[in-house]
Lab assay of single mutants.
Amino acid sequence: MTLTLTVPPGAKVRVRITNENGETTEIEVEPGETVTITLPAGSTVRVEVEVVDPDGRKRTETFTLKP
């Protein structure tokens, strides 16, 4: 399973991925970048995406991906 994120110009994104064992991976994606994350097959993962807009506003979306 893959997750692809494209960050709009001016925004910053931090992604936290937590697996079933509670292990967390965190990455930051710079403005204008596209990143593809390969998620472990057969695992349920929690993905938290934090977006910081150019004006400093933050918003966070959290979702769970199941196999």
Rank of each mutant, 00 (worst) to 15 (best):
M1H: 11
T2R: 05
L3A: 05
L3G: 05
L3N: 03
T4Q: 08
T4S: 08
V7W: 14
P8S: 10
P9I: 07
P9S: 10
P9T: 07
G10P: 04
G10S: 08
A11P: 01
A11R: 01
V13K: 01
R14L: 05
R14I: 04
R14A: 13
R16A: 08
R16Q: 05
R16H: 04
I17G: 12
I17H: 11
T18C: 13
N19K: 06
N19Q: 11
G22W: 09
G22D: 10
E23S: 06
E23A: 05
T24N: 06
T24K: 09
T24I: 07
T25V: 13
T25Q: 07
E26S: 05
E26Q: 07
E26Y: 03
E26N: 06
E30Q: 06
E30H: 11
G32P: 12
G32F: 13
E33C: 12
E33S: 13
E33L: 09
V35P: 09
T36H: 09
I37K: 13
T38C: 14
T38A: 10
T38W: 14
L39M: 10
L39S: 08
L39H: 05
P40T: 12
P40S: 13
S43A: 13
T44H: 04
T44G: 02
V45T: 07
V45E: 02
R46L: 12
R46D: 03
E48C: 03
V49Q: 00
V49R: 01
E50C: 03
V51C: 06
V51Y: 14
V51T: 12
V52D: 01
V52A: 01
V52F: 02
P54Y: 03
D55A: 02
K58N: 01
K58V: 12
K58P: 00
T60K: 03
E61R: 08
T62C: 15
F63E: 15
F63R: 15
F63L: 10
T64N: 02
T64M: 08
T64Q: 03
T64S: 01
T64A: 01
L65H: 01
L65K: 00
L65A: 00
P67A: 13
P67S: 12
P67G: 11
